[in-house]
Amino acid sequence: MSESMIVIEASGRPCPEPVVMVKQASGDPAVQSIVVTVDNQAARDNILRFASYAGWSVKSVQADEPRYTMTLARDDVRTRPDEAKGQKPDARLEQDAALSTKTPAPATPAQAPTTKANSGQAAGCTSVFLASDALGSGNDELGQLLMRGFLFSLKELETPPQNLILMNGGVRLACVESRCIDHLRQLEAKGTSILVCGTCLDFFGLKATLAIGSISNMRELTYILAGSAVLRM
């Protein structure tokens, strides 16, 4: 896949149009970088917010008051392990994510399996494993915000993972009080199987409040995890 850059001139556009233009461009998996120009600070701040929310890194912000030109680059969770070795390390992904090498060929947009496989035996099966409702440790409020951002970005992927596995505190994400239900619903609509640990739901007394996904058990989940490329956040 050739890397492509898109240039957006959003000067003169009222908010939220600049952000919407960037969001639309970011939704195209072929686009690897976006150069966007705006003519006010509110639009600049909004685009920087969106970049951090949607998992794009900000490479530069050039100010030529009142114009600002920002260069954004995709931080793609689907980066192939062999490519990742040669890339500039991304601290966030390196710390939080470990790609299992059990299955040598994780899905890329070009080679994603067409079957809705949640069986670990399918070639190129990808699973995302979440054992908490917050991403990382340090501050819970921040962690939950990051998790929402992560799930938002995950559902924006053209080829989202086959399985999303929720265990321990991660099961809260699929219960009625969760603020990520909309993201999960969209993931499910794109073909992701959401599997929720039944023992964990029982432990937290949340079984009756499960809003999305199907209840699974350790045996099934182990089978799937063992046969998938696993992204553990």
Partner: peptide, 16 residues
């Protein structure tokens, strides 16, 4: 969902 909208950069110009 307004925390999400704020995080996504959907902040009105009036806020600033």
């Amino acid at each position: 969902d307004v925390m999400d909208y704020a995080a996504m950069g959907l902040v009105p110009e009036g806020t600033r």
